[in-house]
């Protein structure tokens, strides 16, 4: 196709109008490289169409400048704002929508604040109750253990083979009494201090059993225990029980002149 054929065919006009196919576009571009004068022809056609559109364009210089300003401010702000601007904002419904959304948002925020506070308080209360429950469980367990211990002691005391031996006071404890509960079949020995006291903190009462004339250590007496009976060392047989005042921790042999309680079996 010659240069003139191209011009005469009207393809250049259609190219500018945008009604050419992609094959025709390639042809035009190829021919424009081949004949650079065709580019001037294209420019002339474009210019004619631009001028024609301008004659149909009632755009005042002042308005045009304003629009240009708006366009530049829009392209120089970030894209999210730009796309939001395109939405017409003049609709009453739109404004009401915004107002309603804002109100809803605020309401929900306030509501959230309150519910979050309520939730916090509820959580604290729950934690308190759980702590209380644990405490009560502990107390109950302690009572149960105490009851079991008491039960055992009751059983021991009411056992027909248990011997209840009264230890009579002498010397410093002349007006005092204590008890030993001794069951030879179970070999259990319990000491009942019955309100004994000891002023000297460096000393301690020690229980002895007298077996065949010899003293046998039965253990130290704990005056701080809350229990009524204190379990002592096991023993099969004894003729008498005695208490002496010894140094803290006890002695291997009783100090005979500190003996203060004595009872025969």
């Amino acid at each position: 196709m010659s240069k003139n054929n191209i011009i005469e065919s009207g393809i250049l006009e259609r190219y500018i109008l945008g009604t050419t196919s992609s094959e025709e576009n390639s042809l035009v571009q190829q021919k424009c490289k081949e004949f650079p004068e065709l580019n001037q022809e294209l420019e002339a056609i474009e210019m004619a169409l631009v001028n024609y559109a301008e004659t149909s364009s009632p755009l005042q210089k002042q308005s045009s400048d304003k629009i240009k300003e708006k366009v530049f401010s829009e392209i120089n702000t970030n894209s999210t704002i730009t796309s939001a601007k395109v939405i017409p904002l003049n609709s009453l419904y739109y404004r009401m929508g915004i107002a309603a959304s804002a109100l809803l948002l605020i309401t929900s925020m306030v509501y959230n604040m309150f519910t979050r506070d309520e939730l916090r308080v509820s959580k604290q209360e729950l934690a308190k109750m759980q702590a209380n429950e644990a405490e009560m469980n502990e107390a109950m367990l302690a009572q149960k253990n105490e009851a079991t211990a008491l039960n055992e002691k009751m059983l021991m005391l009411t056992d027909p083979s248990t011997k209840n031996i009264t230890l009579n006071g002498m010397n410093s404890l002349a007006d005092k009494k204590a008890m030993v509960h001794f069951n030879p079949s179970t070999k259990e020995v319990y000491f009942n201090a019955r309100g004994l006291q000891l002023a000297d903190a460096s000393k301690q009462y020690q229980l002895w059993a007298i077996v065949d004339g010899k003293p046998i250590d039965m253990g130290m007496i704990d005056l701080n225990t809350k229990a009524i009976f204190q379990k002592m060392k096991a023993l099969e047989n004894a003729q008498a029980f005695a208490v002496t005042i010894e140094k803290k921790g006890g002695s291997f042999n009783p100090t005979m002149n500190t003996m203060c309680l004595l009872g025969d079996v």
Binding site: V50, A53, T55, S57, L59
Partner: peptide
Amino acid sequence: QGAFSYLYDNYSKALFGVVFA
């Protein structure tokens, strides 16, 4: 943006004609 300004100056009136039609 200089080229864009040039583009606006030279084609806004014609494109307005197209839109207005």
